[in-house]
């Protein structure tokens, strides 16, 4: 991981050098914090962090909840209980993110209004709903594979000592499955952070939208998008570090 950081730092340094050398068509001044204009530009760009983080966190929390609620009936022995879960996963998984975003943002309020629920969906919640639903199909499959990897004997033993289905899940199966579920779930979270960039197209003022707006006024796409990519990199690296820490902590706990 630290090697990754060094590589990226090297790459960024090289870009900067190339930009300052004056031979190419570089204009790092747009994001040069030592000038008042550059400083205000950088502040504007970085100002999108909070929205992107908020968006990703809420969407991920919703996705993990919906995913679990979809995954559990999906493992029922009864095929009629299983069926809706399967249909949900296959259906949601097949919809590309961008069309779903348009449908939720522009279409869902119309549907709700005709059903007698006049709601408005702003860009923030439109993006969250879309990200959460589209991601939940994948988290559901992650839960399913994690839970099904726990031997059946564990469930049987839990049931024979009198635990109900939900107690069995809560105290026996999920605590064991979580270690196998966590790494792919972290992957999904990183995916959500990156996909949150799509929220820019419906006007959500997150990292990408701000970059786009600045490009329009400054005409410096290369420099601004470079910084944008680095912003996502920082976010994702922070998540990676956190997840590693979490895995180590749980791993240490488990091996004792």
């Amino acid at each position: 991981m630290t090697r990754g950081v060094k590589l990226w730092a090297l790459l960024a340094g090289m870009l900067l050098l190339a930009g300052c050398s004056g031979t190419g068509n570089w204009g790092w001044y747009v994001i040069d914090p030592s000038t008042p204009q550059g400083q205000s530009n950088v502040k504007f760009l970085i100002g999108g962090f909070w929205a992107t983080i908020q968006l990703s966190l809420i969407a991920a929390a919703l996705s993990m909840t919906i995913g679990l609620l979809v995954a559990l009936p999906g493992m029922s022995a009864n095929r009629w209980i299983r069926l809706p879960s399967r249909v949900y996963i296959e259906f949601v998984r097949a919809i590309p993110l961008l069309p779903m975003l348009f449908w939720v943002f522009y279409g869902l309020p119309v549907v709700m209004r005709s059903l007698g629920f006049p709601i408005t969906i702003d860009a923030f919640w439109g993006a969250i709903i879309t990200l959460a639903i589209s991601d939940s199909a994948f988290t559901a499959e992650i839960y399913r594979s994690g839970i099904q990897s726990i031997p059946k004997g564990q469930t049987e033993a839990a049931r024979t000592v009198g635990l109900t289905y939900s107690q069995t899940m809560r105290y026996v199966v999920l605590p064991q499955a979580i270690r196998r579920i966590l790494p792919p779930l972290a992957n999904q979270f990183i995916y959500i952070v990156k996909m949150s960039a799509f929220a820019s197209v419906i006007g959500m003022q997150e990292l990408t939208r701000r970059a786009n707006e600045l490009v329009v006024t400054e005409y410096r796409p290369l420099e601004i998008y470079t910084l944008l990519i680095l912003e996502y990199l920082v976010l994702v690296l922070i998540i990676s570090f956190f997840v590693r820490w979490l895995e180590r902590k749980m791993g240490a706990d488990e091996s004792r």
Partner: peptide, 11 residues
């Protein structure tokens, strides 16, 4: 019930 594979809860 006692099982062939014990089925103790490892965690």
């Amino acid at each position: 019930m006692v099982f062939q594979q014990f089925n103790l809860f490892p965690h």
